[in-house]
Nucleic acid binder design. Structure first.
Length: 664
DNA sequence: GGGTTGCAAACAGAG
DNA sequence: TTTGCAACCC
């Protein structure tokens, strides 16, 4: 018999349309050309981690991998889109077919497809954290609470406990005992509320964000056949921002890649800033233990920033208790010394930022080359007023979302009810708009309507009071109309907005602005194919509050960016202003009694600083103005002793005292 | 007396 | 802007 030896298909025989060697440095190239087996890519800020991921996608596709066999998990949907857009740009449109999004997105997709396996109908709806807290509140109020003996956790604390317990995989009891000793006396009640909350969600066909992860994990863990089917599709799994994943997401990563074992995690432990969501940067260190045979690749050369910006960044990291084995370096030019700007008060700080941005624009920078970063969403309010006065267009990332505003939630509640009539929280919202209906009547109406079988005619309730019967009738008519309009999201939304306008006027002083928001919302709703899709997308990917404003105004100039530091992760700008850099804000006052949280505040400052490519200004006001009085404030303890050699002090001087606006 | 509404205090970060 | 609580209404 003759033997013929089949040789392995030689990858080098593929001729690539991209010259990877020339476009990447050695470590990047190694990561990009890695094919089989687990890899941990430890990539410092600005070292080209996104670039590496994009080129790896392109490379795998060029190798002949079907794009849909690549699973790319990112921190936001925006990040996923941006990466695939860039990958398509360097290679071709095939890259758009890569599977991906956030963990929550992808899990939601799986769950909708296999809803029946977990005892849910496929029209289950996703509730955001506000609604989840309402549900916790609801089940809490059904129990007899201890009356004023000792303090009981409020709904947001309860929800936070439950969520931490899940994301960090620690039992509620243990978590309360260790981290909330003041509530240990109520431990049995807390556990009971937790159980009732789980029950509530199952009975009402809703899932919170954590359920998306947990139920997917359970589904794959307990159903080997299904796990095999799903994991077989993922020849390559890539997880971005791995330092901000939690225990549950690590488990999911392992399940997703359990057939082919080709998983690449990318992250930077020095940029871990999401521990409040249960993330643990030690996940990164644990990666090689979880995935046997992991190859570790490090990216250390920074391409983003000037050396002087990196000097500040490196110095900031020294403030952390837990040391990092990390010194960023670059071959970029030295650049200007970053500035430390002390303003007399908040408004001077805003004026400085606005004027400096205009100066930079005159020097040839686009507005969108500049970002203003801050610790809390509200820290930019004063600046926003100044920018509006000066007609400087901006977008704001982070902070209050459009979909979280009360008037938008009200409108959406009507649609949610239509989609999932068992969604009690939304029903309550809808019914309680009506005069004379509070939480109790709302729930009674809900119970009555559901035992009777037609929830959309609450006006038929036998014991409904005259006082609100007329309004209940109007509500029933609205639902009748909405059902007729089935299939046309825009028309349905328009109908709800018309119905709602009366309530909007009654409820809010600034109803003209709110109604305008809603009209814009109607205008852009055409992009959603179905009601289901609209509700789901808005929950998983809420619209930034300013997107609506920007949509309404002319977009003739790409706008300035305002962003919380958290939302600035992964992004970069030529000029960065970090404002309100005050002790008590960054670091946050909440973090001060916990060294681990304080370290995270250091990393937060590190993330802010490393967003800058060319110019960095850190500003703070000497006078902190809050609603309840002004007081003198101190600059952040992390920057106070950085020293003038690294951070140049700036003094603001008024024009009439000296002809220059700014003196150095 | 239960339920609703008006009032006084606290206030992060995000999928 | 939201959350728990007290006064107020049916």
């Amino acid at each position: 018999m003759k033997k013929f030896v089949l040789s392995k298909d030689d990858k080098s025989a593929v001729s690539y349309s991209i010259s990877y060697e020339n476009l990447l440095n050695e470590a990047q190239f190694e990561a990009v050309t890695h094919v089989d087996g687990p890899v941990l890519l430890v990539a410092g800020a600005g070292t080209g981690k996104t670039r590496t991921l994009i080129y790896r996608v392109a490379r795998l596709v060029e190798n002949g991998t079907d794009p849909s066999e690549i699973l790319l998990l990112t921190f936001t949907r925006r990040a996923a889109h941006e990466m695939l857009r860039r990958a398509s740009h360097i290679l071709d449109e095939r890259c758009r077919r890569v599977e991906g999004g956030t963990f929550h997105h992808y899990c939601s997709k799986i769950l909708h497809r296999h809803a029946e396996s977990i005892g849910y109908p496929d029209n289950f709806t996703i509730i955001d954290s506000q609604d989840a807290m309402e549900a916790v509140n609801l089940v809490r109020n059904r129990l007899d609470l201890p009356k004023r003996k000792s303090r009981f956790p409020k709904k947001s604390t309860l929800y936070f406990m439950f969520s931490s317990s899940i994301n960090r995989q620690i039992p509620v009891r243990e978590l309360v005992e260790n981290e909330y000793p003041q509530f240990t006396v109520h431990i049995d009640l807390i556990e009971e509320i937790y159980a009732k909350y789980q029950e509530y969600k199952e009975l009402n066909y809703v899932m919170d964000f954590d359920d998306l992860l947990v139920k997917t994990r359970d589904l794959l863990r307990d159903n080997d056949d299904l796990r095999n089917v799903i994991a077989s599709r993922h020849r390559y799994v890539m997880v971005d921002e791995y330092q901000d994943t939690n225990a549950l997401q690590a488990e999911l990563t392992s399940l997703f890649s359990s057939v082919h074992h080709n998983v690449m995690a990318v992250g930077d432990d020095a940029q871990s800033i999401y521990s409040f969501r249960g993330a643990d940067h030690k996940n990164m260190l644990a990666f090689p233990e979880l995935f046997e045979g992991t190859k570790v690749i490090k990216l250390e050369e920074n391409y983003r920033s000037t050396q002087r910006i990196l000097d500040v960044a490196n110095r900031v990291l020294e403030e952390a208790e837990e040391k990092f084995d990390k010194q960023l370096y670059t071959k970029n030019e030295e650049g200007d010394l970053p500035g430390l700007v002390k303003a007399a008060n908040m408004n001077d700080q805003s004026r400085f930022v606005a004027q400096m941005i205009l100066n930079l624009r005159e020097q040839g920078y686009e507005l969108s080359d500049t970002a203003v970063l801050f610790r809390n969403g509200r820290d930019s309010f004063d600046l926003e007023v100044v920018l509006n006065n000066k007609n400087i267009p901006y977008v704001k990332y982070g902070g209050q979302k459009f979909t979280e505003a009360a008037h938008v939630k009200d409108v959406l509640a009507h649609l949610r009810v239509l989609l999932n009539p068992k969604d009690l929280i939304s029903w309550n919202r809808v019914l309680m708009l009506i005069d004379g209906i509070g939480p109790k009547t709302a729930e009674d109406l809900f119970q009555w309507a559901h035992t009777r079988g037609n929830p959309f005619e609450p006006d038929r309730a036998p014991n409904a009071s005259e006082k609100y019967l007329v309004q209940l009738k109007a509500l029933s008519e609205l639902f009748a109309k909405l059902k007729k309009l089935d299939g046309s999201v825009t028309e349905q939304l328009q109908e709800v907005v018309s119905y709602y306008s009366v309530f909007c006027r009654k409820q809010f002083d600034d109803y003209p602005k709110r109604m305008k928001d809603l009209e814009t919302f109607v205008d852009i709703s055409g992009t959603y194919q179905s009601l289901n899709q609209l509700i789901e997308q808005l929950a998983l990917d809420p619209i930034e509050a300013t997107v609506i404003d920007t949509e309404a105004s002319e977009k003739d100039e790409s706008p300035l960016v305002l962003s919380t530091i958290h939302s600035s992760k992964g992004l970069e700008w030529r000029n960065v202003f970090l404002i309100q850099c005050l002790d008590g804000i960054l670091p946050s006052g909440y973090a001060m009694d916990d060294p681990r949280q304080m370290d995270e505040e250091v990393r937060l400052l590190y993330v802010a600083v490393t967003r800058a490519k060319e110019n960095l200004f850190i500003t703070y006001p000497a006078l902190f103005q809050s609603r309840y009085g002004d007081y003198f404030s101190q600059p952040s303890r992390f920057i106070e002793d950085i020293g003038e050699r690294l951070l140049e002090p700036w003094l603001l001087v008024e024009e009439h005292e000296n002809n220059n606006l700014l003196e150095e």
